[in-house]
Design a binder for these strands. Sequence first.
DNA 1: GCCTGTAATGTTATCGTTATCAGCCAAGGC
DNA 2: GCCTTGGCTGATAACGATAACATTACAGGC
Lengths: 337, 337
Amino acid sequence: MRRTPTMKDVARAAGVSVMTVSRAFKRDTSVGEETRKRIHAAADDLGYVFDSMAANLRSQRSHFVAVTIPSLNNANFAATVEAMTARLGAAGYQVLLGHTGYDILREEELIAEFLSRRPEAVIVTGGRHTPRARSLLSNAGVPVVETWDLPDDPIGHVVGFSNAACMDLLVDHLAGQGYVRIAFIGGDAGGDTRGADRRRGFVAAMQARGLDATRLIRAGQPPISMHEGAAAMAYLLDKAPDTEAVICVSDLSAFGALTECQRRGVSVPDDIAIAGFGAYDIAGICVPTLTTVDPCPAQIGDRAADLVLTLIETPGGPAVARIEPVLKIGQSTTRDP
Amino acid sequence: MRRTPTMKDVARAAGVSVMTVSRAFKRDTSVGEETRKRIHAAADDLGYVFDSMAANLRSQRSHFVAVTIPSLNNANFAATVEAMTARLGAAGYQVLLGHTGYDILREEELIAEFLSRRPEAVIVTGGRHTPRARSLLSNAGVPVVETWDLPDDPIGHVVGFSNAACMDLLVDHLAGQGYVRIAFIGGDAGGDTRGADRRRGFVAAMQARGLDATRLIRAGQPPISMHEGAAAMAYLLDKAPDTEAVICVSDLSAFGALTECQRRGVSVPDDIAIAGFGAYDIAGICVPTLTTVDPCPAQIGDRAADLVLTLIETPGGPAVARIEPVLKIGQSTTRDP
DNA sequence: GCCTGTAATGTTATCGTTATCAGCCAAGGC
DNA sequence: GCCTTGGCTGATAACGATAACATTACAGGC
């Protein structure tokens, strides 16, 4: 069994010291043009593959950035991560991605695992964590960024927005269109703290306008699916048929709700208006298009990545980068004049 | 600036040697119950975090499994990865996930980066790679699994299915319902080789039944979106209004096509039938529900993970695990009797 | 010719953990 | 009393790279 070659083997083959080989594999280091070529030729010849593990240990730089998101199967978190990966990758960092399943206990485990890989920064989603997770992150000695939220008591840095304020945008829009009896469809209280924040934001926004905020449908364990959105809409149409508009915790559940209306011959928006959250592709193409709020996920990724890159160079005190979500009005809440 | 503590610090604090500390952090090693407790207490006290980097270097085991997928923003790849992560995580492995953007050059870079982290196995999506990527993987000395495809010339192991055969399932179903003038909507020839395989499979399936296979709409750079599916359907309805059925390269483009019909008042399936691929959530809830093919993404993840775990223990010769995709008939292709 | 500067290369000592082997001690068999 | 056995612990030397410093060679200024 052939052992995988090391720098030593390459050095021997090229007739130089290992140090020169090491230098030949880096940029901005002085190695003769001739020598460098010879070394790379020898390396290719031997099938040498650089060993980051050893390099990381000696240089105490892992070039990892740990990132946790609740779920891989979510276009918005995916967009955030893709944006991060692009920026961090360009700067020579590798993203170590994990998903928590919306479970802060699982998040804690994941953070512990990740920290043992000595990432140079950690980016987490949301502002709620277990005490041990908080403590691990605080003591990790690397920049920590919380995203997709504006925590009351941040661990370190923040790149996010107020989920509650997004609901204010929607309620404002609906109230402006003259809707009064407005319902909310979301998940049960559970792991999805951003969903729970939006529910709270809905209640606050309604109360601030003197509107009844008791039409709250709990549609199952969050995050709720299209099917659960449909079931919730069925329940709503049966139990509170005088409802004029409904805000769903996400576009996916909103679309499910829309399909239930279609199956029943209930017209949207003439009989009932529907709004969602997230600006998923589907909101822009379904018939009618859905009113929603765009949380600018790629912007979150970009900003978080930039922040991390800055902080790795020059550590700095906590900062909050506020993202401004954008109301996108669709056909599903547009009342005929 | 306080240096992060090492085993040496823990050993000193607990009054034992570093070796004993090392043992105390593993299972199945003989350390006195008293001593173990004392060591863990000292570790917690100091805020010690185990350093995998050093452990990996010495033990020559990274506990990484590298996984590449074309895109994060895809429910099916996400399902595959979530299934893998669950199994591999339970066995103590960490998934190193990267996305290629459907670009085999980017895939090559990613594979090179990943290999320098010394993963214990590599799982890639699809069977088309650059020559250098193939060579890197072949020489890596670790198990390699290709998924989501049945490559003609596999690098190592395979867990996949025939994308072309899936189209045969759909054409068979449509032809059985009496449809004759059937079109295909897909992306331009490009990075999405599985989409291209499905296009080829469509042509083959049509020709095998003596049907005209020339209604091929190219809807843009793959993977095509809902919007591109809608635009392609608009084109099809304009240029070939006698088309009776259309198969789309994915459910997402199929849904886009469906919305275009809704906007035009074209009835599905009465005026035109639509089928997709992927069994995404949306196919099961939109009105009408879409006929599709379920590639069983979670099963792919499970099987690939099991295979990798077996191979890490006892390397074995190449094997092919064939997944059988399942036709799911929806309302969108059901002709009235 | 001597000094200084700079580019290219080499030497040595680690980074933090674990593999390996050796040592110690108590219990038990003869 | 001596040897074996097994449970626990320690000493030492790596794993494969790089930081830090040392060395060499050669050019140019005086």
